[in-house]
Computed example of a mutant assay.
Amino acid sequence: MSGRVTAVSRNGEYSFTKPNRDSIRLLTGLGVEGDVHAGVTVKHRFRIAQDPTQPNLRQVHLIHEELFAEVGEEGFKVAPGELGENITTRGIDLLGLPTGTLLRIGDSAVLEVTGLRNPCLQIDTFQNGLLKQVVGRDEAGNVVRKTGVMSVVRQDGVVRPGDPIEAELPSGPHRPLAPV
């Protein structure tokens, strides 16, 4: 399974959206250099309040650009970085990957997928009604989260728009993605 990077974003301050950049540098075990969510332990304010010593399984957020077209059909306009992701992708089924998938990006960067992004109410603050578009239920009544995946950095590297992404599935039984 493969795809491409369409945009990269980072923000050194807590903010819902992240400005697009020409490139971002991924740092092993930390996340995106200069991003507020980089670190060994949790950096999301809600998780810090629960337990600031938790490992940071949300170092790098990836979201599929195809979601923007999907919500666009319902009248919402969303551009790369506006939902807080660090890497916007095209052509790879992020939500269909199992936990532990390695994503090789560009020349040397490697991410390990840790789980699904659990969207919060800030999405409705960004655009009223958008949360209902990105969280729904399947035919069996199970919650479906569409706002991308979270990952940790396993190998340093610079990531730029246009870089290829190759998915390497884990060996053994696959564990489906769950919110992290």
Rank of each mutant, 00 (worst) to 15 (best):
A38I: 06
N11C: 08
V5L: 09
G31D: 05
A38N: 07
E73R: 15
I24M: 11
H61Y: 14
Q127P: 01
K146W: 03
G148D: 05
V158H: 06
R154T: 07
H174C: 01
R25K: 12
G148W: 09
E168W: 13
A140T: 13
G72C: 03
E70H: 05
P173V: 05
L27I: 15
I123C: 02
G34A: 09
V110A: 07
D51Q: 02
E13M: 04
H44I: 02
V5A: 09
L57F: 13
L130C: 04
E73L: 12
L95Q: 15
G81L: 06
T147F: 01
V153K: 14
R45D: 01
R145A: 01
V78A: 01
P161M: 06
K132N: 03
A178F: 06
A109K: 13
R117K: 14
G141Y: 04
L131E: 00
R4L: 14
I105V: 15
V42C: 00
R175K: 11
R4C: 06
F126A: 02
F16K: 03
S108K: 15
T17S: 14
R117G: 05
T101K: 12
G96D: 06
L169V: 12
T99I: 13
R175P: 00
L62A: 08
R160G: 03
R90D: 06
G96K: 13
A109L: 11
V40M: 03
I48C: 00
G157P: 09
G100T: 11
R154L: 12
I165E: 09
Q133R: 15
V36P: 00
L27Y: 11
A167Y: 13
V159G: 08
P19Q: 06
T89Y: 12
N128A: 04
F46T: 00
N11P: 00
V149T: 13
E70R: 12
V110C: 08
P52A: 02
V134H: 08
N118C: 04
V42D: 00
F16I: 00
S171L: 09
P176C: 00
T147I: 00
A7S: 15
I165T: 11
D51K: 03
S23W: 09
G91P: 02
L169S: 10
S9K: 05
Q133L: 06
Q50F: 02
L94E: 11
P176G: 03
N86P: 08
L169D: 08
V110S: 10
L111G: 07
G31K: 13
H64D: 09
L111W: 10
R104D: 07
A79T: 04
I92F: 14
P176M: 02
K18L: 03
G115H: 12
V32H: 14
Q50H: 01
L130R: 08
R21E: 12
L67P: 04
A167T: 10
S151R: 11
I24P: 05
R4I: 12
Q59A: 05
G75T: 01
F126H: 13
V110D: 05
V32P: 09
V32N: 10
F68Y: 15
V40N: 01
V180E: 01
E13F: 04
T114M: 12
P52H: 03
A49I: 00
G106A: 14
V149F: 13
Q54Y: 08
G115F: 15
A109M: 12
A38V: 05
V40F: 07
T17G: 04
L131R: 09
P161I: 06
Q127S: 05
P98I: 11
E13V: 04
G84M: 11
P170W: 11
